[in-house]
Design a protein around this nucleic acid. Structure first.
Lengths: 217, 217
DNA sequence: TAAAGCAGGTTAATATATAAACACAATAAA
DNA sequence: TTTATTGTGTTTATATATTAACCTGCTTTA
């Protein structure tokens, strides 16, 4: 138990970046220690869940004391591979793509959008911030030379699958898909969907059908 | 069983908009019937899960035939309240906010961003597409007069909680929160998070720690 | 230094979600 | 017709996740 290479539940893995960010915040504001209860209030996750999540990685805290912010932070930095810079490409420099290019992922993530791709002659050859935009014809070329295996997809829906087919051949491993299209990929490739319309619509559904949820909290 | 007002599992509710969109697509392309297997391939959800999801609403399909596209579509339109237009406000007309304003939620969602709010003098008074941008000082005033209870939050992180406190007083019921801040709200208000940095980081984590997932598929 | 109580780790209980299995009605084919 | 096939709706089984409960040991303070 608490084996280094043990598989952590997906739900836990998804919360790690959240914890990490708040620990960073605590560290910056000079806090030395923190309890699962404090963390819970800040990140809005049940304190028992937090302790459970942490304990998958072994005993990170001390009974009667809590967690040492610095220690936790260092540990998660390693766990989340925050030591080395992760390079990402973005395909489709439209409204949303441009917004993401301007979004500062580097700040406390050590992840950088290295290059952008588009087809529009106005955008190809330009720079958004310090990120160069190349023509989509050259996707394979640049992904290989820059050794990029993670792609943010913000192209129009009809272009999503054709582009994806090329990404598969270009040995991409992960796709963050902002298009409404459900991508067909081999099981070796991981796709995370962020479907804006679905998110909005499901929020509306919940509001109308689950009136004042958690009456008892 | 299959009671109209029965609470559907959250996981199911989140998939409904997805089903709905694809049914719309089928309808447009003139398809009359569809099986759970076909649907499964398109939306990338197990066919058994789809049948289960649908059966929460009663018997929508016919054995040996499948589902009638028109019937299903009509049913989900009602269920997802697609008959009446849902009005939404967007607060924070920055890069991301502007991108969302240009995003055509109306197309097959019957949801419209009615007004935007910002503090920048350049943006206040302008229009993005056909959406007017007002000053954030007037949030309460316009939300009330327009009877808007759903808000998309795309302000900078430090502004998130202060703005939210005002939204609570303005009787907002749902918030789609694009900021990294975890909002403190009473249990009567529903918040959905779309945390771009977390999404990207968790994708990276999965790639490094869950190598070629589903080897057996 | 001893007592009080805080707070982590862990086990057990509950809830939720997915996937598999199957019986049977409706269809299509022979 | 009759027979074979399809594909739903449902049940059962399995996997996953959350919440609560508890025990133990460290910290603190008197």
């Amino acid at each position: 138990m608490s084996n280094e290479s043990m598989k952590i539940p997906q739900a836990t893995a998804k919360r790690l970046p959240l914890y990490y960010r708040f620990l960073n915040h605590l560290h910056t504001s000079g806090k030395q220690r923190v309890s699962s209860a404090e963390l819970s209030d800040a990140v809005k996750v049940d304190s028992a869940t937090i302790r459970r999540d942490f304990s998958y990685f072994g005993a990170l805290g001390k009974k009667g004391y809590g967690y040492n912010v610095n220690y936790l932070l260092t540990f998660f930095r390693k766990t989340l591979d925050q030591d080395e810079l992760t390079k990402v490409a973005l395909i489709g420099v439209g409204n949303l793509g441009t917004a993401l290019l301007n979004y500062n992922f580097l700040k406390n993530n050590n992840t950088k959008i290295q290059i952008g791709f588009d087809v529009s002659p106005e955008r190809v050859g330009s720079k958004i911030g310090d990120v160069p935009v190349y023509h989509m014809d050259d996707i394979e070329k640049y992904l290989e030379s820059e050794k990029i295996q993670i792609v943010i997809l913000t192209v129009p829906a009809p272009a999503a699958q054709p582009v994806t087919d090329r990404l598969i051949k270009a040995d991409v491993k992960g796709i963050l898909n902002f298009t409404p299209a459900r991508l067909h990929v081999p099981p070796t490739i991981r796709v995370h969907h962020i479907d804006l319309a679905v998110e909005l619509q499901s929020l509306i559904y919940f509001l109308k059908h689950y009136p004042s949820e958690d009456e008892a909290l």
